[in-house]
């Protein structure tokens, strides 16, 4: 796993200039280069009842559980009062789906654990890996999850005391397999189409479906636009086909993040998490009124804040 992390970090750093196709290629090539030895190494690790290894794997399990909890079981958990607003925000953000992300993960777990079994049974052969191209590039993350699953069986057999985390995890797992509708997200999922982003020339980005997205959120697109500009610290305009032209280079992922934050702040009801809300303006203050539960909360206006002077200095006065 460590090697995967190492490989991932540089791409994260180069976020600014990365291009999705590049990333995929990288991942794929890495996955293919998984040597059979590595795989063999990983498999026995999970099954040996060595006390030392057990401890290690336990730690791993803890890690994984955290990860998982935040993704799949978050909506059902009792909302803990986190003082850090950020942490809470992240939890909530997970509820929103820009299409396909979450599903991918679930699917991955399923087919990769199957895949691993196949590998074990058939004795690892390269052809399989190459043949199942679709899976290979999803592999690194998925394998982690598969491991977690197997470890679970490990702690069940040992006679130490089960931790709450493990039991909770087990509960959710069983619940998910037996009646998925209970484990699923409450109510309907809110789907917002992923922002379609293109480059115009070298310095401008086109955000084509802003109108669509803001309609979906029941917000005037001017408001969304204002927020985007304030957050990104740039300016821009709307062109003839009601597409948004943003100055500066932005990737779809980045805009997605900003949109998520917008939804968190200005669209979801904090009480019932619904997005059927509207913004009401009352003597200069904006209130977010929920249409499904009727709660109101005040939201701060969009402030651009400090804007540094960029570019030529001749305009500066005094």
């Amino acid at each position: 796993m460590a090697s995967v992390d190492e490989n991932l970090t540089p791409t994260a750093e180069e976020q600014l200039d990365f291009d999705p196709t590049m990333k995929k290629k990288k991942k794929k090539s890495k996955a293919v280069s998984f040597t059979p030895d590595e795989l063999d190494d990983a498999v026995p690790h999970e099954e040996t009842p060595d006390p030392e290894v057990d401890e290690l794997t336990d730690m791993f399990a803890g890690l994984k559980k955290k990860k998982k909890k935040s993704t799949s079981s978050a909506p059902l958990e009792p909302a803990d009062d986190e003082p850090a607003a950020d942490a809470g925000a992240e939890d909530n953000i997970e509820d929103f789906d820009f299409g396909s992300q979450k599903k991918k993960k679930k699917k991955k777990v399923a087919d990769v654990s199957a895949f691993e079994q196949q590998l074990e049974e058939a004795g690892v052969n390269e052809e399989e890996e190459v043949g199942e191209d679709d899976e290979t590039f999803e592999k690194p993350e998925a394998e982690e999850e598969g491991e977690g699953e197997e470890e679970e069986a490990g702690w069940l057999n040992s006679d130490r005391e089960y931790t709450y985390e493990e039991l909770l995890h087990r509960f959710f797992k069983i619940l998910r397999t037996n009646n998925p509708e209970l484990a699923g997200e409450r109510g309907q999922r809110y789907k917002i189409p992923p922002p379609s982003v293109m480059r115009e020339g070298n310095k401008k980005t086109i955000f084509a479906n802003l109108k669509d997205i803001s309609d979906r959120m029941h917000r005037p697109y001017e408001h969304v636009m204002q927020f985007l500009f304030a957050e990104l610290g740039t300016s821009g305009s709307v062109d003839g086909n009601s597409r948004l032209v943003i100055k500066g280079r932005f990737q779809q992922k980045q805009l997605e993040n900003v949109l998520r934050r917008y939804i968190m702040e200005y669209v979801t009801c904090k009480t019932c998490k619904s997005i059927s809300t509207h913004l009401a303006k009352e003597n200069r203050l904006y209130f977010l009124v929920c249409e499904s539960c009727g709660s109101r909360r005040s939201v701060s206006g969009i402030k651009t804040g400090f804007q540094a002077h960029i570019g030529k200095r001749k305009k500066m006065v005094g």
Binding site: G233, G248, R249, G305, F306, Q307, I310
Partner: peptide, 13 residues
């Protein structure tokens, strides 16, 4: 905050 400058350069305020 972050602001984009020319190229891939940025500014943090």
């Amino acid at each position: 905050r972050i602001q984009q400058r020319n190229g891939r350069k940025t500014l943090t305020t």
